[in-house]
């Protein structure tokens, strides 16, 4: 096989994906850059914007709250929820992969149950959780008060001490199944021979986990971390529908800021500028991350 022929093959195999992606992402992304340099409202036609150079970026960074909002996005919304998802996801995936479940004939049931939160549309998941967490009539508070753990209901979504943890709980609950499922698929692809060989060598379970499971899962884990980080960072639905950024602006994140800028303040350009800033942050992250994982692989 000559390199040139294999390259050609690779291009042919990638072509359909590349065409679709270019069609639906490239043109809109360029348009987004144009928007970020214009003053334009969502009610104007696409050609009606006024060029204002970097004015939108000055405006966005001039917001005294910008850095607090960026910090919320990076730490609470993204880093914390991704970390929790990976930890719990790995634990659940390993548990669900265990032969114990097959012995008790509950493997299929358990795997189905784990996936269920994912089947609930995000909007509904949030509505249900808000109702569960309601400060007076919510089930959780009825249990807490009923059992005497707290004297009166806890307004989970109204006080700064609990609000972020509540949002984090909703995100982890809804998005955990994805991580579990991908890791489980990864676990199932590990050839049993490897474990067998290890056990012939006298390796215990913990050593087998470290020397076989983790290295084999690494390619999949790498992608999962990358993708969940980016998707969560850009997600606006969870915060928007749970607290709208409140109390005050305590839970505001970049994506909600973008949304209210574009659609409430009618500053499509400033919204696009926030979008670009978000893209930059994630691009830097993606490059650093991919470099780090690549050197690890070698």
């Amino acid at each position: 096989m000559t390199t040139r022929r294999t390259s050609l093959q690779a291009y042919l195999l990638s072509a359909p994906a590349l065409v679709i992606v270019a069609l639906l992402f490239l043109f809109p992304s360029i348009y987004n850059v144009i928007l970020s340099l214009q003053e334009i409202s969502p009610f104007q036609g696409p050609g009606d914007g006024e060029w204002i150079g970097l004015g939108n970026f000055e405006y966005v960074f001039g917001n005294p709250e910008f850095w607090a909002i960026a910090r919320n996005t990076v730490f609470w919304l993204t880093a914390l929820t991704v970390l929790l998802r990976i930890v719990f996801g790995l634990a659940l995936a390993v548990a669900l992969h265990s032969p114990v479940l097959r012995r008790w004939k509950v493997r299929g049931l358990a795997r189905t149950l784990v996936l269920i939160p994912w089947m609930v549309p995000q909007v509904v998941a949030i509505a249900s959780w808000r109702w569960l967490l309601d400060g007076s009539s919510g089930v959780l508070n009825q249990v807490l008060v009923g059992s005497g753990l707290t004297e009166s209901g806890v307004a989970f979504l109204a006080q700064t001490s609990t609000v972020w943890w509540s949002i984090v709980a909703i995100i982890v609950w809804r998005e955990l199944p994805f991580v579990v499922m991908v890791l489980l698929a990864g676990l199932q692809s590990i050839p049993d021979e490897q474990y067998e060989a290890a056990s012939l060598d006298g390796a215990g379970r913990i050593r087998a986990f470290r020397s076989i499971t983790v290295p084999n899962l690494r390619p999949v884990l790498t992608v999962v971390v990358l993708v969940t980080v980016i998707q969560t960072f850009n997600n606006f639905v969870y915060v928007w529908l749970t607290t709208g950024g409140g109390p005050g602006t305590y839970t505001a994140v970049l994506a909600t800021e973008l949304y209210s800028m574009a659609f409430f303040a009618n500053k499509l350009g400033a919204g696009a500028a926030i979008g670009l800033v978000m893209t930059m942050i994630m691009a830097v992250f993606a490059v650093l991350y991919m470099r780090a994982t690549r050197t690890e692989d070698q």
């Binding site: 590349l18 992402f25 809109p28 969502p42 980016i230 998707q231 574009a262 919204g271 490059v287």
Partner: peptide, 26 residues
């Protein structure tokens, strides 16, 4: 192949854009 890294980046890059900004052009 040549461009493999670029393709990988392109795929990741598509995920970077917040979806709401794609609506109008699409």
């Amino acid at each position: 192949f040549r461009g493999r890294g670029a393709m990988f980046l392109l795929l990741v890059a598509t995920q970077l854009l917040p979806f709401v900004v794609l609506i109008t052009p699409v």
